[in-house]
């Protein structure tokens, strides 16, 4: 049985990440897994690349101690979005990466990250033509199974420990 204080996530290519379970308390997918299958060694996170999972876990670590109420609806218009300087990395990232983070946030069911990435995508769509939007979020680019690991979000270790 795995250490209950930590959780190990396995990405699509087998890379593992072991992080404190508390980091992922806002992930509904992880919480459901811990309740039903927490006795297993590791949770598979298919369709997520190591690079993207690294970034997601960074986000979760940064916000692990946030005390705000969990978001029920990531696009709730009654709760105005306020940019958090700790999330600046998402605002500067390329469009294709942003798209992958958006999808990872959806897969892991982290409403706060869904909101952040959806808001960022919305701001990039603002004022654009359909052709420009297509060029920004070209679906063919998403077919790539992995992305360059040389990135600003941190290096992925062999065993998946988060670089700090």
């Amino acid at each position: 049985m795995s250490d209950p204080a930590n959780i190990t996530l396995v990405t699509m290519d087998g890379t593992t990440f072991t992080v404190p379970s508390a980091y992922l308390h806002r992930s509904k997918l992880v919480q459901d897994w811990l309740r039903s299958e927490g006795d297993k060694q590791a949770m598979e996170v298919k369709h997520v690349t190591p690079f993207v999972l690294q970034g997601v876990l960074n986000f979760c670590e940064i916000h692990a101690e946030d005390t705000s109420e969990p978001l029920a609806d990531p696009a709730d218009p009654t709760k105005p979005f306020e940019a958090d300087p700790r999330d600046d990395a998402f605002r500067g990232m390329p469009d294709d990466q942003l798209l992958q983070f958006t999808m990872a946030a959806d897969i892991l069911q982290i409403p706060e990250l869904v909101r952040l990435t959806a808001q960022e995508m919305a701001s990039r769509i603002d004022g654009k033509s359909p052709d420009q939007i297509r060029a920004m979020f070209n679906p063919d680019d998403l077919a790539e199974e992995d992305v360059d690991s040389d990135n600003e979000m941190g290096e992925v270790g062999e065993e998946g420990a988060i670089s700090k």
């Binding site: 218009p77 869904v114 959806a118 808001q119 919305a122 769509i125 004022g127 679906p139």
Partner: peptide
Amino acid sequence: MPHLPPEILGHIFRCLKSTSRD
């Protein structure tokens, strides 16, 4: 664009509707 699930597109567009100038 098949890679973005409809519910995510819905979130993005609702964000767009609430924050866009037009």
